[in-house]
Computed example of a mutant assay.
Amino acid sequence: MTVLLDKKLTARQQWALEYLSDKGWVPGVTAFEGGDEFVGAYSEKFGIKDNSKAQKSLARVLRPLEPMGLIEIGKAWGSRTYYPDCGPTHCNEYKITNRGKRAAISHDTYD
């Protein structure tokens, strides 16, 4: 099934969806959150040498994907949303949704 999006995903957003598509919950984008592998793969793919710049860039790439329903972000109590099904062990972690998996494959947008 095709997922129609209001605007085309950027190359970085597309990469993030493809990266997340074959994984479960992925640790956040900082080393503190255990996201060294995610940030490392992102910085290697896009040639970002500075780790803190890569972390900030990846966070900016991921942030708009959640309201579109393409990823879930496990959040702690007191933040905008808490996903009760992810539990506290997945706070600050990312997971692709079924819609996100279809979007990663379809690349379609509204005209």
Rank of each mutant, 00 (worst) to 15 (best):
M1N: 07
V3M: 07
V3G: 03
L4E: 03
L4Y: 11
D6G: 12
D6C: 10
D6W: 09
D6F: 13
D6K: 15
L9T: 00
A11R: 15
A11I: 13
R12C: 03
Q13A: 10
A16P: 04
A16G: 03
L17C: 08
L17S: 06
L17F: 07
E18H: 11
L20Y: 06
L20V: 07
L20W: 05
D22V: 04
K23P: 00
K23N: 05
P27S: 14
G28H: 02
V29E: 07
A31H: 04
E33P: 00
G34D: 03
G34Q: 08
G35E: 02
E37R: 14
E37G: 06
F38A: 05
V39G: 05
V39S: 08
V39D: 04
G40M: 00
G40D: 06
A41M: 09
Y42R: 01
Y42L: 03
S43T: 09
K45Y: 04
K45W: 08
F46S: 06
F46M: 06
G47E: 14
I48Q: 02
K49A: 10
D50E: 13
D50V: 07
N51H: 10
S52Y: 08
S52G: 01
S52A: 11
K53E: 13
K53A: 12
Q55K: 12
K56V: 02
L58E: 07
A59E: 13
A59H: 15
A59P: 02
V61W: 04
V61G: 02
L62Q: 00
R63E: 10
P64L: 07
P64G: 06
L65M: 15
E66S: 10
M68N: 00
M68V: 05
M68Q: 15
L70P: 03
I71F: 02
E72T: 07
I73D: 00
I73K: 13
G74L: 09
A76H: 12
G78Y: 11
S79V: 04
S79T: 14
R80N: 05
T81F: 14
Y82F: 12
Y83F: 08
D85E: 15
D85M: 09
D85S: 14
C86W: 12
C86I: 12
P88N: 06
T89Y: 03
H90S: 07
C91Y: 10
N92D: 07
N92G: 01
E93P: 00
I96M: 03
I96G: 00
T97W: 05
N98P: 08
R99I: 01
R99V: 05
K101L: 08
K101V: 01
R102S: 10
R102T: 11
A103W: 01
A104C: 10
A104R: 01
A104E: 00
I105E: 13
S106I: 08
T109D: 02
T109R: 13
